[in-house]
């Protein structure tokens, strides 16, 4: 880890994430997620989320969302209600997970990630994330993922 850079970057990310109104987060996520998971939604792989809530909590940034599918449309809500399964951890862990630099089970064994609630739903979402074909993502999203990967490699390199 690179503590110095982290010290500078984290508060910036944290403050901008918190300052970004929920409505904007909601609009951004509801636009992005259906693109990322287009094939999975189409093939019914994500039917497990129909009417059920997955809560994602980024603890150190103090932000979170409840995500569900309604008639195959992604809906993002505030994370203050109940959810069927809750996955929580710090921003670093999520960045490493999404950019495939760390294995989710490892993060879980080391207790850097927590899954509470319906384990089967959590596992299914994890497996779908693992199976996601990054090659097939629309170009801007591939770029975004690449940047997350580079930034997290830079900040969190061990």
């Amino acid at each position: 880890m690179n503590p110095l850079i982290q010290k500078f970057i984290e508060p910036v990310v944290s403050r901008s994430a918190q300052a970004c109104p929920f409505l904007i987060q909601k609009i951004a996520l509801e636009k992005m997620l259906p693109q990322v998971f287009a094939a999975e939604i189409e093939e019914g792989d994500l039917d497990c989320l129909e009417g059920r809530y997955l809560k994602v909590l980024v603890k150190d940034l103090n932000i979170g969302w409840s995500i569900t599918l309604r008639n195959s449309l992604v809906e993002v809500e505030r994370a203050d209600g109940d959810a069927d399964v809750t996955i929580s951890g710090d921003a670093r862990e999520f960045a490493l997970l999404v950019s495939r630099q760390e294995d989710p089970d490892t993060l879980f064994f080391q207790r850097r990630l927590t899954i509470e609630g319906d384990t089967e739903l959590g596992l299914e979402v994890k497996n779908i994330l693992d199976a996601l074909d990054h090659e097939n993502l629309p170009f801007p999203l591939k770029q975004l993922l690449e940047s997350v990967s580079q930034v997290s490699r830079f900040i969190y390199a061990t």
Partner: peptide, 15 residues
Amino acid sequence: SPAKAVRWEETDLGR
């Protein structure tokens, strides 16, 4: 240990 039978819980005593 099928996932539907598994429950994790963070408690005061630990995970």
